[in-house]
Design a protein around this nucleic acid. Structure first.
Lengths: 225, 225
DNA sequence: CGACCATTTGATATGGATCAAGCGATGTGG
DNA sequence: CCACATCGCTTGATCCATATCAAATGGTCG
């Protein structure tokens, strides 16, 4: 249940995604079975409640999954970056909707084909478990994030992004403040204020609103308790 | 990837657990492989970070899984009731600790035995997927609960419990207000106040502090938005 | 240049936390 | 069997973090 797949250079126009963390993968046979699709900014990949007929792997760009609650609040479940697999559901239908945060390229693979292959090839089955395990971990970490203070949530988010970004300390955000707010259960104003506060205390630098440089990890970590 | 296991009568001394929702199961061959253990109130079933050598199925009582954060806050991940399976991790180690909320009987099964069996018996493999899927669903629902107001969280918790309780409208709580608070990311005071508020608005009755009767589902649901 | 959208900043309101005290049930020792 | 300690729960008063409302600023694209 480990995931030591080497991540080769990918000809993405976006972040080359070199991770230190183990990385989910579904390369090899499956790569052949899929066809690539492009999704423009804010366009829908699939909708909540639709049958989960396909599996998706981000090639470039960023995808968000989300739910809109009865009162209109939107909760973002996760952001998927190049290399990530999404859309794999435990049941038959999608429980979230998925949209492109920015223009994205996605590898689309028929789920039934993957399942059939998994039945024969145990390494594929292994990978499916790995993907699912990561998804569960993600959700559990999200729970832990949501009980914390605004500062802790934002710091946690920054670490999460930094861990997956190419340059360890400079984060290029594809998503808006509103996206971050909806992911963290806060408002855009709180996100903005918290970031400027981090900047003032020299924990981060904000060369541009979507570019964040982590300057003092320890100071941030102190908040990330 | 659906979970249509018939749920036969189970000779549990506790709630007969008749659910409308599909119910996780690991009966049959596996039932034979396990040995039953008893855990006294507040005693530990396993600790965070320990190797996940066993799988557990609640026979009677209630189990909570939790994490203690750096600053001492405790977050409860889930409550497991009779029939529920817990302790099944995506990785090799437990990511939460588990304790008995009340005196409990638990069926303990060696994980490796289950995995071996799953490799041969696809219906067992199916059940493992079902358990994992339910766990993922649980975590995602938990996220959705945590972004809501105190009233909505408490109402959501009551519905969650009612759905799994034997008598649809009368809930016997095994857990303390502190447990509920740590599950919902609130304080005991807020739990208490919210419940009395529900009582005053005639949405529920509180014959005893650990016994809650849902009187007006619609009124509660309105809060559950 | 002008319009639009995202972000920041400011002022105020409020839900839930915190601090504090009281209450009821349960159990223990005298 | 009662007195008292303990524990879980409730209730009250106050405080504070974050939401809300409002406006200004900045960046991007026609």
């Amino acid at each position: 249940m480990q995931h030591k797949n080497s991540v080769q250079a990918r000809k993405s126009s976006f972040a080359p995604a070199i991770h230190s963390a183990p990385k989910q993968n579904l390369d090899g046979p499956l790569e052949m079975m899929g066809s690539q699709m492009r999704f423009g900014r804010n366009s829908e990949v699939y909708g909540e409640g639709e049958p989960a007929e396909y599996l998706y792997k981000v090639v470039s760009g960023t995808i968000r999954t989300y739910k809109v609650l009865a009162d209109g609040r939107r909760q973002i479940g996760a952001f998927y970056l190049p290399g990530d697999i999404f859309g794999f559901e435990a049941g038959d239908d999608h429980t979230f909707s998925a949209e492109a945060v920015s223009d994205s390229a996605v590898l689309v693979i028929k789920r039934s084909a993957v399942m059939d292959l998994a039945a024969r090839d145990s390494s594929v089955a292994q990978q499916l478990w790995s993907v699912t395990g990561r998804e569960l971990q993600r959700a559990q970490d999200h729970v832990l994030l949501l009980i914390k203070s605004a500062q802790e949530r934002v710091a946690g988010f920054l670490f999460e992004m930094a861990k997956r970004a190419p340059g360890a300390n400079t984060i290029q955000l594809a998503m808006s403040r509103q996206d971050i707010a909806d992911y963290l259960g806060l408002t855009i104003e709180t996100i903005s204020r918290t970031l400027t506060q981090f900047e003032k205390s020299a924990a981060i630098a904000l060369p541009a609103s979507r570019q964040i440089e982590i300057r003092n990890r320890a100071a941030l970590a102190r908040l990330n308790s």
